[in-house]
Amino acid sequence: MRRKPGTLLPLETAICVTAAALLRRGTHEFHGYEIAKRLGDAADRRLLTAYGTLYRALGRLEQMGLLRSRWEDPEIPARENRPGRRLYTLTGAGEAAAHDARKLVAKRTPRRARRRLAPA
């Protein structure tokens, strides 16, 4: 998908918004599979975002400074006997982008007319 300068692709916006939602619930860091699952839940899709699409988007967001990543302390996966996770964090710029995206969505969605009760 071609990108207009200074804008985010829908998937990138969705990642920022989902990460911001996680942040509000107290989850500061997330890994690739976790965000894919949340994105799937939010869009009510069973199929998670493709590996290539997801990790390419995460990489782009990191390059743009909207996400930051680190590899978790190797002692943790060693203890839990699993591969190490790359943990992403939403930066201040990422939070701002998520906020802007939510505002834009709210502006585009027409408000429902308030139901009036029929007169008795």
Partner: peptide, 17 residues
């Protein structure tokens, strides 16, 4: 099937990356 679908649909992005 889920894993394969995620693999196949992401291949263009893998190559672009």
């Amino acid at each position: 099937a889920h894993v394969l679908a995620r693999l196949l649909s992401g291949i263009p992005d893998d190559l672009a990356w």
